[in-house]
Design a protein around this nucleic acid. Structure first.
Lengths: 372, 372
DNA sequence: AAGCAACTTGCACACGTTTGCAACGCGTGT
DNA sequence: ACACGCGTTGCAAACGTGTGCAAGTTGCTT
């Protein structure tokens, strides 16, 4: 496609009547493009453009006879209604913008898939943009607004306050997934992070782990902080166990593997590592077993977050917390399409679920061979 | 957003002049939506709509004075040009459709990312659709045509011939990624699969493996077949080694793990398993080591395809073949945007690269401890 | 036969933008 | 003083569609 070329304007009196009997569709030539419009179909079917339009509008009033005529003509010409033009007049693009800032984590690939499938099912389309920094996100939001999207889902940083306010004024709904930010006119779908932190602490204490290393992802995310706070609160309440170290801004396998190694080689030895992503946890696990020669779960426990496919592989069998992917997406979508008039910037919090596999001891294993 | 509601038509004589001095943008109310148009900006700046349009058109002729006036007004109102309306008149949507049929494999997540980033850089947007069966794909293509996309990239099945022909007529370019189909007016980006098969066979024979098990993904894909043919041709030429079994339609970790187990338990014992995806290979690897207690690479080799991140993890160290992701995407894009007039349904074949890790013996290991 | 309701159909305007064309302003050269 | 040219500006016609309104048609009831 030539990117920039002065369009050859066709004469106003061009013939728009397709060759009535020809098998090859008529339509109009415009440089290399051929576009068949409702006009062409109308002419071939011997009806008005309105009839064509109504044939393709579900609830419109057309007789079966004309509808059939139109459908025949449309099929013959390969006519597809032009959604761009339709959007212009209906002021609804049926487009949802999706800004993606997390690509490494397989969990988000699954999310992406579900999103596009579920939106497709509702007869909406997704426009995908990549962007991680706040500046990127702002640019992306601006772009999406230019495309008149009906809503924006963010799996990334939040946009700036001014831009979010602008979206709110324009009636474009914002949904933050797995993120939140105070005072933004945007719905947040988040996990009960503090609750998960508490459950994790209780579980680990219960099977005898005591010296914890807490590993977080991106430093500025509230989620990780809340999880740690929940975790800590149980330690304080039970007056057992201690946090002997923390790691921040660790994202991905390599980061986890390197971090645990340096941590242990610096002379500190946890007996349980709690990570904020499965990828990091798997890095820690391999670092522990392969680089450091430690026994998991006997000497040390590892727990992840997200329950990505690799967590359940036989070589890993990682204890982790499963996220309610379906629930998150349904929540996002139902907020996006909700027109009950409920007060809008909502906050949906969903529970996670701990999946015990083989990187943590179980109560049974404890009883069989009591620790120390 | 109310999905279906008769739009309250506003009176033809509505006031379109924004409150001149007000800080809150004027614009027009339409139900819940507020939309600021070039008209509003023009009024505030005291110029015509044309001037506004030209300000936002890079190569247009506007004086610096009016451009500044317009920009000030636009900023004040938060105006964004309506790309929908622009597309209608320029007959260019700057939209590329991307139909995705492969979601499990992390390799395709990386591809998705690169695509959206590189298209964004060229000032194009990507519309993402999910679809795997040919019917899904046809539906998706139709949808994309309704949105007037400038091109379609398929990482999925190919569309039907009629539909592809229709796209060709409409000037919408089709690019198949990692797929191909004879006689379709679509460019294919493929790997040199036969070449990879040959290299793999040579490598494995060279370090002493003899009894091969070949595992393929989706049965109908040419790629897997070509790879096997290449592999076989080397065996024939060298009169060494034999293929003792094949598996088809195995996709994903679980399938690989189960398959190898059943295969061996049925009494057959390969000494090298060649898989057509890393995921399957990792399943086979775990099945071999954990379920079957075999030693890799001493007793048996495993090789994958794709070089996904998990392949390089310390616990796996999978020998695999790396795909030229960048090259594939650049090829797809440059074909899509090429206007040199080269004959179009092209066929680009790219080389893969074998990455030897620890699931195959090396020549050095052979010499240290000669096999049998 | 006339009246009426229900349904169908076409006209024409609107959506927000781009852009060819003509008009205009202004400086310069003769 | 006038002609000329150049850069800027506004007018108005598109782009392809949806839809309120009024006119037309049909079938039924009285």
């Amino acid at each position: 496609m030539p990117a920039k070329k002065t369009r050859a304007r066709r004469p106003a009196t061009r013939s728009r009547v397709p060759l009535a009997g020809a098998r090859v569709p008529g339509g109009l030539r415009d440089g290399e493009r051929v576009l068949i419009t409702s006009h062409d179909v109308a002419a071939l079917a011997g009806v008005s453009r309105s009839a064509v339009s109504r044939t393709f509008t579900p609830a419109a009033s057309v007789s079966d006879a004309t509808r059939r005529k139109v459908q025949r003509a449309a099929a013959q010409l390969g006519y597809q209604p032009n959604v761009i033009a339709r959007s212009l007049i209906t002021r609804q693009s049926r487009l949802i913008g999706l800004i993606m800032g997390e690509w490494e984590n397989p969990f988000y690939a699954a999310m992406l898939r579900q999103f596009s499938e579920k939106l497709q099912a509702r007869d909406y389309r997704v426009m995908l943009l990549a962007g991680s920094s706040e500046k990127d996100v702002d640019d992306s939001v601006r772009l999406l607004r230019q495309y008149q999207v009906d809503g924006i889902v963010l799996v990334s940083a939040a946009p700036s306050e001014e831009l979010a306010a602008e979206c709110a004024r324009a009636g474009v709904r914002l949904v933050l997934l797995n993120r939140e930010r105070q005072g933004l006119p945007a719905t947040s779908i988040v996990l009960d992070n503090a609750g998960i932190g508490r459950e994790l602490a209780a579980l680990l204490l219960n099977v005898g782990y005591q010296r914890f290393l807490l590993v977080r992802g991106r430093a500025q995310l509230r989620a990780g902080i809340e999880r740690q706070d929940g975790f800590r609160s149980v330690l304080n309440a039970q007056r057992r166990g201690q946090i002997i170290g923390e790691g921040t801004d660790l994202v991905g396998y390599a980061a986890g593997r390197q971090f645990i190694r340096e941590f242990v080689e610096a002379g500190k030895q946890p007996d349980a590592v709690v990570c904020s992503s499965d990828l990091t946890a798997l890095g820690v696990l391999d670092g522990l077993r392969i680089d450091l020669g430690q026994r998991v779960p006997d000497d040390i426990a590892v727990v992840g977050f997200g329950d990505i496919p690799a967590a359940s592989w036989a070589a890993n069998e990682l204890t982790t917390v499963a996220l309610p992917l379906d629930g998150m997406i349904d929540a996002a979508l139902s907020d996006m399409f909700d027109d009950s008039g409920a007060d809008r910037p909502r906050r949906v919090v969903l529970p996670g679920r701990i999946i015990e596999r083989s990187t943590t001891r179980t109560v049974a294993s404890i009883q069989a061979a009591p620790s120390r």
